[in-house]
Design a binder for these strands. Structure first.
Lengths: 247, 247
DNA sequence: CGATATCTGTGTTGACACTTTTCATGAGCA
DNA sequence: TGCTCATGAAAAGTGTCAACACAGATATCG
């Protein structure tokens, strides 16, 4: 399977968006991108269209493309969507998991446990934090995989990515007291353990309930952080009244 | 807002797919379509890409585009996805509905009741059946609207459309005894009434549960019909062994 | 039966058309 | 004179097109 230019352009742009090099709202000019990637504008346009449907880019006819920027309402809706899908998937995982699925989930879980304790003990957090997040993602992916529904997995992964782009950039700027953060991490860990237990016990209702609870907690936290951010990378739209005052 | 050629092509192709004029598996040649729509191939290609992300078309590089054809597994996964979203939406509807939402739901419900009874009485069913389906869709849309989550509504509508294209073509060919069909319609009606009652009572758990049950029933029925269809418009992929026997 | 030529149809390109935005110019008015 | 606002021309960038390049399928020939 020869890789076509469209795919090259897609990977290039997508990578930059996910790495934060193209932050939300960043304009994506087809000509500039075409020059950088060294292909013509057509495959770039195709790539942008594809990214739009991934939810990472927004395109308006004649007005060009931007990295997707979400206001609070849309973000909240997306979180709820994710809640619906991922909790359902947890229920399915309790039904359909194999032995190897369980091992994978548990593996991520023990890694998280180790990292959480280590972070709580040590002062130097930064690289460990990234690793913890990575294992967190791994845990969730493992659960979705165990659900044995590829379409659902794909859809949830899509939402995860959008979430990462939209909220990832703002989270960094929020200084949180270490004690509070440690408590949160501990709580997250326990929730994950509950989810694992329910899945391992083949108890769909419990798995679903625990996942729902876990995600709701996370969502509340995210939304709280976002509303605190007055002017950030993810600027919410100003209402007409607010606009009048800001000039 | 001037409509661009891409949109024209998109509407044209989409309409044909939804109307059944382009059945699942039907090849979509860019040149032919371009000639028919009287635009160049570029906007047609864009339109096909968009339709691909709607889930109505599948494109493979250098191999062209077809109207999406699903095998049983994927169809079943999609149904489950819809179940997750729509039952969650029902729960939200119980929380967030307004008075006008309730009226809209009830309106569709009474229309369905009238039609169901009429169909059970009379022999001439065909035009009434179409109307009944229409009111059924209306009911579900009204519930999703009441949930007050546009993203979720959009996603569910997308799944509805795919469902219609994929299963719509096969359902017609399945002759079902009238008594049985009437009983099913009556049962569907009652389920809808239960859902309405739960939403009106602002009981999210009940609304979710009823919707989940209703959809599961529908899905089981659909899957049953599909598995019965040996060779139909929605041909499942033949396994290598089966292929060996069929030639 | 396998290698090769041909053919169909997509992928890609660069040029052109059109839309939107911006900015400068100038008229109208206090 | 200085300010506001209409106007329109230029700039910037996307949408569209037709021609070419190339991959994959089919037919042909040894």
């Amino acid at each position: 399977m020869k890789s076509v230019n469209t795919d090259i352009a897609y990977d290039y742009i997508r990578k930059r968006i996910l790495s934060g090099e193209f932050p939300p709202g960043h304009p994506l000019l087809t000509e500039v991108l075409a020059r950088d990637i060294k292909v013509s504008r057509t495959p770039v346009r195709d790539a942008l269209r594809k990214l739009e449907t991934d939810g990472l880019v927004s395109i308006r006819a004649h007005l060009g493309a931007n990295v997707k920027k979400m206001e609070l309402k849309e973000f909240s809706e997306m979180c709820d969507l994710r809640l619906a899908l991922e909790s359902h998937a947890a229920g399915l995982a309790a039904r359909n998991h194999t032995e190897s699925d369980l091992r994978e989930i548990q593996f991520a879980l023990t890694a998280m446990k180790r990292l959480t304790e280590q972070i709580a003990r040590d002062a130097s957090e930064q690289p460990l934090l990234a690793e913890l997040i990575h294992e967190d993602v791994r845990f969730h992916i493992a659960v979705m995989t165990a659900a044995k529904n590829d379409l659902m997995k794909k859809e949830i992964l899509r939402l995860h990515l959008i979430n990462r782009v939209v909220s990832g950039t703002s989270m960094d700027k929020q200084p949180v007291p270490k004690v509070e953060a440690d408590a949160r991490r501990q709580s997250v860990l326990e929730k994950h353990q509950d989810i694992y237990t329910a899945i391992a016990a083949s108890d769909p209702a419990a798995a679903k309930r625990e996942m729902e609870f876990h995600l709701q907690e996370m969502i509340d936290h995210s939304l709280l952080l976002m509303t605190r951010v007055e002017s950030g990378v993810i600027a919410r739209e100003l209402s007409p009244e607010e606009l009048a005052y800001s000039s």
